[in-house]
Nucleic acid binder design. Structure first.
Lengths: 176, 176
DNA sequence: CATGATTACTTCAAGCTTGATCTATTCAAG
DNA sequence: CTTGAATAGATCAAGCTTGAAGTAATCATG
């Protein structure tokens, strides 16, 4: 299951990422604030991993990351979730959720159930077929992520998790 | 300079991010691999910051993140960059770079110069107007990022930078 | 109950991004 | 020189995402 264009792009560069000057982070001058460097590196790491996951989901399962993400939330909330809950959890706009749910519903992977208490709302749930489909993908997805992050020791994983938690907490607080 | 929709979404949630159950990371079960948790948290942090930067660039400077990113690379390489160099640095496809450069060129913020050695290629450079415009944005951008990341101490910044570097190195290596 | 504000969701246009395909140029090998 | 492969870039359809505006239902307050 090749990932044509992405692989092509990667192979073309011909280096192993050691060439700092050809890297996005080169825009951070040495005198720049540490924060800028961190942000750029964070972004790079995320995009590298995200790109892989995206391309493997496409070539291996003919689906997309947003669809996978949405199904992942539903899998953890078997009673179903309302549209606005999905929107908040996935950190995307409501219009976006509508579009993705529309697709998945058309493919019978999720269903919209009426919410008895509130006639404005639905409860979105995985169908049986959706559960089955998701389970398969989730197994592969976890393997990919584990492999991609296996460069850090368990100790480093914990340290990173802690630092990211702190960063996240602060960002969320600033935005409140 | 408000950020209407995003702010609206944020205000609506009514919590301070303390409610783990309404968080994307809730999909990581306790028995799941550490790697999955880290990946989800990394993604959340990135999206939070990226969303802010994006929305502030729009409301404050009527531009977008990809445009800003591209100009940032050009600002660091005053002699200009070829399309494929931009594509590699920004980690996006060539078609994407074409589209963004087309826009910026139409607005006279960048220019395509013929590459004498290779008639297939151009050299993209910031115009004077582009430099001026970018400098303004870059100052604001750095302030935003510094503020968003100010939750970590200098020591923690360095630790995080180191861990992300290691992660990145490994990911790049795996993909080679 | 009336009414104004809020909430749940949809719709839509505009911009981003990808992946695929295309043309033109350059390079490599015979 | 010729020819086939590789490269630089453009183009395009399809899907993602946002931000803005709209509809319908619910809530809060008097």
């Amino acid at each position: 299951m090749p990932a044509p264009a992405r692989a092509e792009r990667r192979d073309r560069r011909g280096n192993r990422g050691n060439d700092r000057r050809s890297d996005r982070e080169s825009i951070a001058r040495s005198e720049d604030h540490h924060a800028l460097r961190i942000w750029l590196r964070l972004l790079t790491c995320t995009q590298l991993i995200e790109g892989q996951v995206r391309s493997r989901l496409r070539s291996g399962f003919a689906t997309t990351l947003p669809r996978f993400d949405l199904m992942a939330q539903l899998e953890r909330h078997r009673a179903g979730l309302k549209m606005n809950e999905l929107s908040r959890m996935l950190m995307v706009t409501g219009g976006n959720v509508t579009a993705i749910v529309d697709q998945l519903e058309k493919e019978r992977l999720v269903e919209r159930l009426d919410e008895p208490a509130d006639r404005r709302a639905f409860r979105i749930r995985l169908t049986r077929a959706g559960e089955k489909s998701f389970t398969e993908m989730a197994r592969a997805h976890e393997e990919w992520v584990v492999a991609l992050l296996s460069g850090l020791s368990r100790r480093e994983h914990e340290e990173l998790l802690k630092l990211l938690a702190k960063m996240k907490r602060h960002v969320v607080e600033v935005l409140s």
